[in-house]
Design a protein around this nucleic acid. Sequence first.
DNA 1: AAGAAAATGTTATTTTTTAACATTGCCTTC
DNA 2: GAAGGCAATGTTAAAAAATAACATTTTCTT
Lengths: 252, 252
Amino acid sequence: MHQRQRKILDMLQRGKVLIREAAAELGVTEMTLRRDLKLLEERKLILCVKGGAIPYPAKYEPESAAAELTDCKFAIANALFQRIMPAESIFISAGTTSLAFAKIVARYNRLPLTVITNSLPAASTLFRSCCKVILLGGELRSSSLDLVGPIAEKNLEEYHVDWLISGCDAALSDYGFYTSDISVSNLEKKSLGIASNAAIITDSSKFGRRALTRFATLSDIDLLVTDEGISPEDARNLTASGLEVITIPSGS
Amino acid sequence: MHQRQRKILDMLQRGKVLIREAAAELGVTEMTLRRDLKLLEERKLILCVKGGAIPYPAKYEPESAAAELTDCKFAIANALFQRIMPAESIFISAGTTSLAFAKIVARYNRLPLTVITNSLPAASTLFRSCCKVILLGGELRSSSLDLVGPIAEKNLEEYHVDWLISGCDAALSDYGFYTSDISVSNLEKKSLGIASNAAIITDSSKFGRRALTRFATLSDIDLLVTDEGISPEDARNLTASGLEVITIPSGS
DNA sequence: AAGAAAATGTTATTTTTTAACATTGCCTTC
DNA sequence: GAAGGCAATGTTAAAAAATAACATTTTCTT
């Protein structure tokens, strides 16, 4: 990397850099500095704002999250949110639907909850809020930004929560809920054991499919929130097994 | 909050919003949208970039960090970094000097280390790097963005590291190192127990002062990195106690 | 309904960004 | 060491975006 670009990064360590000033300080023309900034921005080292640049904000969200946070997921998350009471404790698992839920909680920011989570995106969303946030320990997976593994599972034993809030990768209405990651599955199973109520929030497209491992049977779960896309038969199966099913309009 | 502003936040959930487009979509003039964005930016809900805005990046750094990350701290951190060998495991404690160290590690990004930390800023800095990151669990303190408390301490017992890397709030060259936070102190004490080597990195201004609690005696520490501002007498005291002392030029 | 206050729109001006092309300096190759 | 090429930087003009100042509309109050 060019010496000058390295210097720009140094300058940025303590906040915003203005193009005007920095160009003078580095003894180059504004155009050159702009070209440097563009390069650094492409490499995700900085973020260009109006008259300058700031350090690249370490978004605590996997790259994929933005695309997957659909309106439908927010609507589903919002429906569940209506059920949560002040001062309750909840465990928010990793995954985009759960993240949508965390964002709803943060946006509303009036329920003083105790939130336990293994998801850095969720913790990131909530740490400024009025909720108390507890993070499980463990190895940080850089792809999904969640904490899994034996330490996370062991930490879980220290807590009890009113609600477990989780998504799923696949679901069969007569058999249970699946995830495609074995370590996630292990953690989910454990978290079912520490929760008074378990809620699954998922869009209806997940039904009728299997994934690697089943982490919950139908009887493990108390409440399912999904969209109207779910087939009447699936809904009937679930209700018959004692789950409460909430469906939100698909258009919302 | 205005209905329209709420809508803007919704739009932002899935990435960048362009002023041109959003103004058309919301049926208002660009000027009005700009005013909305300015308001939302003041409330730290969004961040304005070139032709639009992005969701406010949840910077995993306490507000104070930027101002305190001086060149001096980076120089000190860099000197310590030279001592770290590939594949070693290190514990990085919370605090701005330790954060400077994490940033050096991330910037260089060639040492495959295992990093254990209770600091979200440090984890945030390192999660994209080639280091393996392990986060202690515990309650998230929103002011300092670190994890402390009994769970964090207990998790520590699961690990052993080659290096403990820590800052301090105050130091006496004939007595030891202080911090002004009792829960931090507890964690520091524990972490001394799991490290083969303990390094303290701190600017020389901390010497000759006390703070709330002493977390380390002189014999607990193996290596001290500071700047030339340290008095010859302090340096002599430390060396006499068996600490290796590295001083970096103040101007650097 | 009158008037005040807030919100929004309009226009002109300034600032910032982009694009296209000119210049410089460095490196290769003969 | 000179010719030529390539990358880096500089210059200028045009486009885009942001700001400021003021006009208009809407909303609320009384």
